[in-house]
Design a protein around this nucleic acid. Structure first.
Lengths: 152, 152
DNA sequence: GAAATATACATGCATTTGCATCTATTTTGT
DNA sequence: ACAAAATAGATGCAAATGCATGTATATTTC
């Protein structure tokens, strides 16, 4: 029942297993270097890339595909660690603007080499550039054709 | 610093985003049909496929790539729901053997159409068979060449 | 064959996640 | 301008996860 090709099943299980395994390895690399989880890196990077205007939490929710409460709590922890700060938002008094602290900027910079080394070993050493590009293309199609841009 | 090609970055972010989005949609499909999470399906299927000899928890841990305590607790819940039962293991008194109950077998059968429909919409409708096969191949290479077999 | 080591599984405790709902403000419709 | 609806964000509570460690049995080593 429910005809699905073997190829579909193989793609799905490959996706589930591979993403879990690689993510776990990246997390392990960060943790064993004494760094916080990858999600913190994502937050720090997005805020840094947002530049001088800062970033609103709801924008982060969109970019990182997190549930709203997930963003709220993640930010709470990162703020508590002193890596970002919330500033009241001038043009919307419900909201806030996120900014990196100096410690946050430093943390992001220090995490990157560990992250990059892991990606080098896990991805770049295993796929040549053409393959990586093809994989990315297939994954993007799977995700539903075309969405907003994406960054590391 | 830390040269990584754009293709590597694109493959990595594609992998993270796509796996999260698709998994979330599958989970949503199951939940809104009134079913338990996908991990329950995985457990039920593995036990069913193990056949008459049943399956040991540590084997499940290997197959599903779960941490040991994760398996222990997942099984606890599924047992409590009456879908599987633990039987004392004859040849290793530390261990146990898992078996499906009739309700477990039924549950797995009833979940499959929902699961399959989701995979049809998310994977099969978006990639033709050749693309799916290629995606699976690339993902398997990423996961570290060749491991044991894998099933849905 | 006794002691050391390894394996199977469980569990207490802290952290994280999910869900539903709450408050405050902004936007919309009339 | 005001009521209704939508949006930004927080939070209480329950469930799930991670981590370290515990207990029991098996296996290895000397």
């Amino acid at each position: 029942m429910e005809q699905l090709t073997d190829a579909t099943i193989a793609a799905w299980t490959g996706l589930m297993r591979t993403s879990r395994v690689l993510l776990e390895r990246v997390e392990t690399a960060l943790k064993s270097a004494g760094f916080p989880p990858l999600s913190w890196y994502d937050v720090l990077l997005e805020i840094e890339m947002a530049g001088a205007e800062g970033l609103r939490p709801y924008e982060l929710t969109d970019k990182l595909l997190l549930p709203q409460y997930g963003t709220s709590r993640l930010l709470e922890r990162i703020v508590k660690a002193g890596l970002i700060e919330r500033v009241a938002c001038a043009e919307d008094r419900r909201g806030q603007v996120l900014r990196l602290t100096e410690a946050g900027r430093r943390m992001r910079r220090r995490m990157w080499p560990v992250y990059a080394r892991a990606l080098g070993a896990l991805v770049e050493d295993r796929l040549d550039e053409g393959e990586a590009r093809q994989l990315a293309a297939l994954l993007n199609r799977l995700r539903g054709g075309e969405q907003g841009p994406g960054d590391p």
